[in-house]
Amino acid sequence: METTTSTTKGYRPMEYASEEGRLKIFGFWIFLGAEIVLFSTLFATYFVLVNQTAGGPSGKELFEIKIFAMETFLLLTSSFTCGLAVLAMRKQSKRGYFGWMGVTLLLGLGFLILEIEEFAMLVEMNAGPTRSAFLSAFFTLVGTHGIHVTLGIAWVTGVMIQVWKRGFTPVTSRKIFMTGLYWHFLDVVWIFLFSTIYLLGVA
């Protein structure tokens, strides 16, 4: 576990500067791989159960294009602003980082509020997760993504506080980079959710 802060090979971004940083980022990629398996399993169960509405409502009746289009817009934009925040970190611009990450957080919160409202509306319509196997699968899949977003918001906030206190160090920049990876990952999952569940659902 030797620390080499710089190498002779040339420029390395700060998050990759230490051995520890490199290991953790690599490990985080692997973790995201495991997350993909996790979501794939949830997708598979969803498609097994998608027609098991038990006489209850189907996706076609429940999904509202307006809501999920808005959700998609918010999350995709937040992924973009998150990327800008990481770039700002690379340029050592604290203002840029806090500004863009702040926007990302707001967009993420907006997404979350829309999703919670959507869920509340469904439950009110007697279309909660205990209504049918289809709805169980729907709530679990979309809800798991939602929980990931919630944790992501908490994590990003925590990292922002740490950056506030400590500035850009190899450790904090590694954390910023990892939160960025995580946020993009959530976006990728959402693209699948959006296209296979909502779009196919209303089609």
Binding site: Q52, A54, F139, T140
Partner: peptide, 12 residues
């Protein structure tokens, strides 16, 4: 009370 594996509710 979800219905992934229960017969009522159409689980498998």
């Amino acid at each position: 009370g979800f219905h992934f594996f229960t017969l009522a509710g159409g689980g498998s």
